[in-house]
Design a protein around this nucleic acid. Structure first.
Length: 809
RNA sequence: GCCCGGGUGGCGGAAUUGGUAGACGCGACGGACUUAAAAUCCGUUAUUCGAAAGGAUGUGGGGGUUCGAGUCCCCCCCCGGGCACCA
């Protein structure tokens, strides 16, 4: 063998795997299927370290599962609609399609050079018409099932860019591109009714397989279920009433005022009745002017205006004042509250500021509850609550008061969710067109399925003014109603790219189906995804939307399972210079250069070795030198081993053979548990053992030589597949990927000797190399003879076999 | 404020789940090779006292359980992430 020429070896094997379809799932097989999926990337053009970590982990799993006899499905594709391509088009005039596909080609090349195995026959791209045809198809199905609807909604609008922005593109109230202040604007927008599934999305989190706790917690927070009561408050001396929601019906006797949000729909009635209407109007106007960000940041000090009107507490008939205040949000609950300053800190702050009465209605002797300085938000027994006094607040108290509201027919128990419907309209060019047509006679009509896809029109100017660039194409907009045939106009908005990614994992199972988005049998056979791997930044949006899509598709009979991703793994971020790598900060480390200087195998090993894969970690350039050194030593070792003289006796090989066997055991365990950092360290240890062995041995039996050579290659293969394949082929003339993962010889795991620790009163006093398997009497004898210990002075002796003996006295 | 993580050498991190703390790697230091450097190889590397043998201390802090605690229990401090006027 020659020097370790990693570039030559790596390109050789990449070509081999590709030419031989080394990963090819049998899609109709029902046994031993394993769907291993890495989140498909936005084609930014270059892989960054996050991708490298993601796809290295994914590839380790793919190769490990293949060797363990699984029929592995490991596809890859592109989340290829989205803003950057459109911005580039505005700037340079290059068509977003050209721009995007160039970048896809470049990234695909880099993924291949990383040595990751993907079944490229199954490649999908969100922007291709073969794909977005089916995105539109699914949208129409959702529409027909009343899960897609259009309504006026406030959106983030950047007037300098003339576009809506996603929430995540609004940074502290400003546009992340031009820094201009973002306005709230009401536009007629399309929504998907994810809220229909709030409860199931929450419950599903308890039934799902292995998901990181923090991701589950984040989704739970986001869904934000709260249980309580809803009831109506009547404005005194009028017939007008409005609903309020509370999680604390037990505190109803403590209500000393009520608040409605400035945007509340009964504001017109309030204005016409209020003696204070001038002040109210001014407050409402001011609130409207404030951006959402301003309203949030100015929230320390609560403000509001007394309407001069009163509402009646339905349980005790008490008249309390009605206020408007912007600390009550229009889009949560009913946009109005009963205010109980004694037991809610926000109400307390407000009451203190405006000198409103505060009544304590719950007391708890144990915690010496008091409302002198702040609201008491804990539980206890009811007081000042008439017939309900002495009831336990959170149990009987709540229950009985809700019961009373029910009897009076003004309220009931109620569950509220924080999760709101998903706004998917985007006034942008580079996205999937919404396949709906506005007919004056028939209303909103979906395009006929046989006419799909509704193609993105060719346009000259991608800049959007106040509406989507698609509106500029007369040819596109003007059409005929699919129902009645009269002239009608198409929707010009495109969909949020998260719609595309909400079902791509289904398409991978059946990517060239021309009749349907996917075949139900195939999807039911392969899904849920056995292992999904991706960045934690998608913890809420993508993962929640996909879960919603699967449930909706299930209810429309397109598939028969409840959750898309059985097991989820989130890799941590790789930082550089103490913070997240980003082009604008100029602190990026470009992975591509390492392919040439260190090789893909060394890069993969370092990425795996640097930290536990779920932890964030700082990039350290020295680290990759270490894994490169390891590979060089490995290369030298196997060469020496292959040349080592072959002996008849295998007596001298026992130790190294056992070390290999121990490594099979521990590498397997670590890979099973995603502990790649320790799996790499196991390989390094084994390599060091092999160096020692080679240094001290004159020869080795043929059997041992083969055993060592074979297994050391196999163990390395998932993590550093190129070098492992090369060595294996050189020595065995076979392809490593076809080889089965080895069984552990459980009878040969223990070393014959160990270092016995002798403790006196729990303190390490002596150590001694000792044969395993000795009984306590034999160990005691050794202590007596070798360490001159007088055992009779100890009261108690604790012996843990093959580990430790502790003399206590 | 609430909900998740997490605090171990100069650094990234190990520790069979209660049994020798610091595996493996990086860095640093010393040595070999070299005219020299790089690469490579050999050695040292938790802190502290000591010339050494050896001793003491040590897993964020304090208490506890135990023959024995990085690991289990209670209290506190700090860091990272997410959510946040959500009624």
């Amino acid at each position: 063998m020659s020097d370790y020429e990693f570039q030559k070896i790596e390109s050789k094997w990449q070509k081999y795997w590709s030419d031989n379809n080394s990963i090819k799932s049998d899609i109709n097989s029902v046994d031993n299927n394993f769907y291993n999926l890495c989140m498909y990337p936005y084609p930014s053009g270059d892989l960054h370290m996050g991708h490298i970590r993601n796809y290295t982990i994914g590839d380790v799993i793919t190769r490990y599962k293949i060797m363990n006899g699984f029929n592995v499905l490991s596809p890859m594709g592109w989340d290829s609609f989205g803003l950057p391509a459109e911005n580039a088009a505005i700037k340079t005039g290059i068509h977003p399609k050209t721009f995007t596909e160039e970048r896809i080609n470049n990234m695909k090349d880099q993924i291949i050079r990383l040595g990751s195995l993907y079944e490229w026959d199954r490649e999908v791209a969100a922007h291709s018409k073969d794909y977005y045809k089916w995105t539109q198809f699914i949208f129409i199905k959702l529409f027909k099932n009343k899960l897609a609807y259009k309504k006026d909604a406030p959106v983030n609008w950047c007037d300098s860019c003339k576009t809506v922005l996603a929430n995540e593109q609004v940074i502290e109230g400003n546009c992340d591109r031009c820094d201009a202040v973002v306005d709230q604007k009401n536009l007629n927008q399309w929504f998907l009714k994810i809220s229909e599934y709030s409860d199931e999305l929450l419950d599903g989190l308890n039934q799902i397989g292995e998901w990181p706790e923090n991701v589950k917690a984040m989704q739970k927070n986001w869904i934000g279920k709260s249980e309580g009561a809803e009831f109506s408050l009547k404005i005194d001396e009028t017939d007008i009433s409005f609903d309020v929601f509370t999680t604390r019906p037990d505190t109803l006797f403590g209500m000393t005022f009520a608040v409605v949000s400035p945007e509340h729909h009964i504001m017109n009635e309030i204005l016409s009745l209020s003696p204070n209407s001038h002040d109210l109007q001014k407050y409402i106007d001011d609130a409207k002017k404030k951006s959402e960000f301003e309203r949030m940041s100015l929230t320390k000090e609560k403000t509001g205006v007394d309407t001069g009107l009163f509402v009646i507490n339905p349980v005790n008939g008490k008249r309390v004042s009605l206020w408007i205040a912007d600390y009550v949000l229009i889009n949560y609950g009913t946009g109005a509250i009963m205010a109980v300053p004694g037991h809610d800190q926000r109400d307390y702050d407000f009451a203190k500021k405006y000198n409103i009465e505060i009544i304590q209605v719950i007391t708890d002797k144990k915690s010496e509850s008091s409302i002198e300085r702040e609201a008491y938000v804990g539980g206890g027994v009811l007081i000042n609550s008439g017939e309900f006094d002495n009831l336990e607040s959170h149990t009987e108290g709540s229950k009985k008061i809700i019961q009373l509201l029910k009897e009076k027919q003004i309220g009931n128990s109620k569950t509220t969710f924080r999760l709101r419907d998903w706004l998917i309209s985007r006034q942008r060019y580079w996205g999937c067109p919404i396949p709906l047509i506005n007919c004056d006679k028939c209303g909103m009509v979906p395009e006929r399925e046989e006419n799909l896809p509704v193609l993105l029109p060719e346009i000259d100017d991608y800049k959007n003014t106040n509406e989507s660039p698609l509106a500029k194409s007369e040819e596109f907009i003007n059409t005929n109603c699919p129902e009645c045939g009269i002239e009608a106009k198409r929707e010009t908005d495109t969909m949020d790219t998260f719609v595309d990614s909400s079902w791509y994992f289904l398409r991978f199972v059946d990517p060239s189906n021309e009749e349907m988005p996917f075949d139900a049998n195939k999807v039911n056979n392969w899904l849920p995804v056995d292992q999904y791997i991706g960045g934690v930044e998608h913890a809420i949006l993508h993962l929640l939307y996909s879960r919603f899509f699967v449930k909706a598709l299930r209810d429309m009979n397109y598939l028969n399972f409840d959750e898309p991703f059985q097991n989820l793994f989130s890799q941590g971020m790789i930082n550089f210079g103490g913070s997240k790598m980003s082009k604008s900060k100029g602190n990026t480390v470009d992975p591509e250069s390492y392919f040439a200087t260190h090789g893909a195998d060394a890069l993969r090993l370092y990425i795996l070795f640097m930290a536990p894969p779920s932890d964030g970690v700082e990039w350290n350039d020295g680290g990759i030198e270490g894994t490169k050194r390891f590979l060089n030593k490995f290369w030298e070792n196997v060469e020496k081993l292959s040349k080592l003289e072959e002996l008849d006796s295998s007596k001298n090989d026992e130790n190294i053979v056992r070390k290999v066997n121990q490594s099979i055991n521990s590498v397997s365990k670590h890979l099973d548990k995603f502990e790649f950092n320790t799996a790499v360290s196991d390989l390094m240890k084994l390599n060091n053992e092999l160096s020692e062995f080679l240094k001290n041995s004159k020869g080795v039996s043929k059997k041992s030589k083969d055993m060592i050579m074979k297994n050391i290659c196999i163990l390395l293969f998932p993590m550093a597949p190129h070098i492992a394949s090369e060595v294996f082929e050189e020595y065995f003339k076979e392809n490593l990927i076809d080889v089965t993962w080895p069984e552990v010889d459980t009878d040969n795991l223990k070393d014959p000797t160990y270092e016995l620790v002798v403790q006196i009163n729990g303190k390490k006093t002596y150590t001694r190399d000792t044969d395993i398997g000795l009984e306590q009497v034999e160990i005691e004898k050794i202590c007596k003879e070798e360490f001159n210990m007088n055992l009779s002075e100890f009261k108690k002796i604790i012996y843990i076999k093959d580990k430790i003996i502790n003399f206590v006295g």
